[in-house]
Each structure stands twice: as C-alpha cells, then as structure tokens.
Nucleic acid binder design. Structure first.
Length: 135
DNA sequence: GCCAACGTTGGC
DNA sequence: GCCAACGTTGGC
C-alpha cells in the first residue's frame, strides 16, 4: 500500500472541516505532478493531512475513499479529483521543523519540492512520522 | 521549440 | 512582506 501527503491551507479547508464533513472531494489540483499522484491513489490508502501556511504541520490521517475521476471544477478537463475521508487526528502534530530536523525524512518529496500539493510518502517515512506523532 | 516574463505557492 | 522555487504563457 502506498502512502501520501496532501496539503491544505486550514483557512480554506482544515482537517477539522474534513472530520465535520465526514469526507470530501479533493479537487482544485492544477499541477501535473500532483495530478499524477492523485491518479496513482487506490481506495483505502492512507494520507497524511498537512496544514500549510497557518500551522505548517501534519495534523491528521485520512484515507482514499474514491480513486481519481475528472475534476468538475476544471474547465479544461485535464485534471482529476479523488475523495478523501477522515481517519483520526494525530495525537501530536508533526511540524515542518520537526520533519526537517529528522534525518530519516531528508528525502521526502514534500520537503524537496515545497510547492507540491500532493506527494508520495515512503513506508519508512510514514512509520517515522507516525512515531513522531505519538503512535 | 526556446526562453524571458509573469503568476502562484509557501516558508521565513 | 519578501523571496525562492517552479509552472505557465506568449513572443520570436
């Protein structure tokens, strides 16, 4: 099973919003690299939910509820959306500073390319982050 | 098809 | 608020 990380500005859509809604369509991605990752997602795969700008931390776990389908909000029809459901909040947030300070996470895609809104997370990175979050 | 200019994202 | 990184656009 692959793992992923998605970013959202909590002002626009926070993890609490996802919990409140019980799930959401993850659309609005307008970047090819990110879209490729969306297309690779499978139902049931788990996703780290990261708050950018206000927060700068991984705050919760979500999972893929529906694989990629055409993003209705995209007039060109080139991009896709998925559906995500909340799993649980993390016991402890894992901040960007925490992740940068952890050598095991040095190769993380989201650290390498900070603007990428959807990125893959390796098994080892996944385990490391969950451990940092208090299990 | 190249590349400069511009816009957007996101960390600081 | 600034700036670096990166993607996109448009002139040539």
């Amino acid at each position: 099973m692959a793992h992923w990380l998605v970013k959202s500005e909590p002002n626009a859509y926070s993890f609490d919003d996802l919990v409140r809604d019980g799930g959401t369509v993850w659309d609005g991605v307008r970047n090819n690299a990110a879209a490729l990752h969306l297309k690779a997602m499978k139902v049931g795969e788990e996703v780290l939910f990261y708050h950018s700008q206000e927060g700068k931390a991984v705050v919760g776990l979500a999972k893929v509820a529906r694989t990629a389908f055409p993003d209705k909000s995209d007039p060109t029809g080139r991009f896709v959306a998925v559906e995500l459901k909340p799993v649980r909040p993390l016991k402890k947030e894992v901040t960007l500073a925490d992740m940068k300070a952890e050598p095991k996470l040095a190769g993380m895609e989201m650290l390498r390319q900070s603007r990428l809104s959807v990125s893959p997370v390796s098994d080892e990175q996944w385990k490391t982050i969950l451990k940092m979050a208090g299990g």
